[in-house]
């Protein structure tokens, strides 16, 4: 299966500070989750892939077009990309419809009738179908977030890049967004710091920290890295990465040496993620 998008030794520096170290990876069809702490390089990676940001070195290929090569190739790639940045500063005086209409023009929907139908379609997808005529200033935070996602969906792009799409959404809206994303045909790359999103949604997980990918594999593979290392007992485990008292009064410990009277429990994505983070100098399961 050929990759929808690929990084070939891509790196990015802001001034002299490296934001992304030389990274190579291929993205195929399905939902890929990018997990990592703030400042790990998630946004940098997504902006590079979206063509909003040029890399300092390396090659980025999207749908067979080398975006680092020529302007013409970049434009071809952009016709196949939908990108939703982490934060969108909306022009507040515009209506939701006018905003999407404008971005659809920028995405080369020149025919007015077809463009308007497409705008209605993406409004419906994010459940804003009855808010089209409303001024953006009057929309709630969650509605604005969904509007930002809607603009990325215009034209059903082959590669959809969403930076923290679930931030600001309530649980119900998050669930409906998951439903929407899992139903899309192309490749979806989302960054998140919510581990539930990853376990609920992603076929593949990338864990990124300090500008480098620490893990690349399926959710099952990620969970396997933490198997046997999460314990529940009356007391905290010594040397644990994280411990907390659960509702049952028992203490859940991630990592460390288990106390004799504690039992092993199934790890969550969050446990695995915390353990990975604690071992930043020994990357595991990284496929080049």
């Amino acid at each position: 299966m050929s990759a929808i998008a690929s990084f070939d030794s891509v790196s990015k520096k802001y001034g002299r500070a490296p934001a992304l170290r030389a990274t190579s990876l291929n993205l195929h069809r399905g939902v890929v989750g990018l997990l990592g702490p703030n400042g790990a390089g998630k946004t940098t990676m997504l902006r590079l892939l979206s063509t909003a940001l040029p890399p300092s070195s390396g090659r980025i290929v999207v749908c067979g077009f080398d975006v680092t090569e020529s302007h013409a190739d970049r434009v071809e790639a952009r016709r196949r990309i939908g990108y939703c940045p982490q934060e969108v500063t909306f022009p507040r005086g515009m209506t939701a419809f006018a905003f999407l209409d404008y971005l659809a023009v920028l995405k080369e929907w020149t025919d007015k009738g077809r463009r308007h139908a497409e705008v209605e379609r993406v409004l419906d997808l994010v459940h804003l179908g009855d808010r089209g005529a409303m001024k953006i200033a009057k929309l709630s935070g969650g509605q604005r977030r969904r509007l930002a996602i809607a603009q990325a969906l215009v034209g059903s792009p082959d590669l959809l890049i969403l930076d923290e799409p679930t931030t600001g959404l309530d649980p119900e809206q998050r669930a409906s967004l998951r439903g929407l994303l899992s139903g899309l045909a192309g490749t979806v790359l989302i960054s998140t710091h919510q581990t539930e999103d990853v376990s609920a949604l992603c076929d593949r997980v990338l864990v990124i920290d300090a500008g480098a990918i620490r893990f690349d594999g399926t959710v099952t593979e990620l969970l396997a890295t933490a198997a046997g290392r999460v314990h529940l007992g009356p007391a905290a485990t010594s040397g644990a990465v994280q411990t907390w008292k659960t509702g049952t009064g028992l203490v859940r410990s991630v990592g460390g040496q288990p106390a004799p009277d504690s039992s092993v429990v199934d790890p969550s994505v969050e446990d695995a993620y915390l353990l990975l983070r604690s071992e930043r100098h020994t990357p595991q399961g990284v496929n080049p």
């Binding site: 940045p85 969108v88 971005l103 023009v105 920028l106 995405k107 080369e108």
Partner: peptide
């Protein structure tokens, strides 16, 4: 004038010169 939207406009295929 549309600087706040630049992050959204940049990855669109529309010619920025034309814009």
């Amino acid at each position: 004038a549309l600087d706040p939207l630049r992050e959204l406009m940049a990855p669109t295929p529309y010619s920025k010169l034309r814009l």
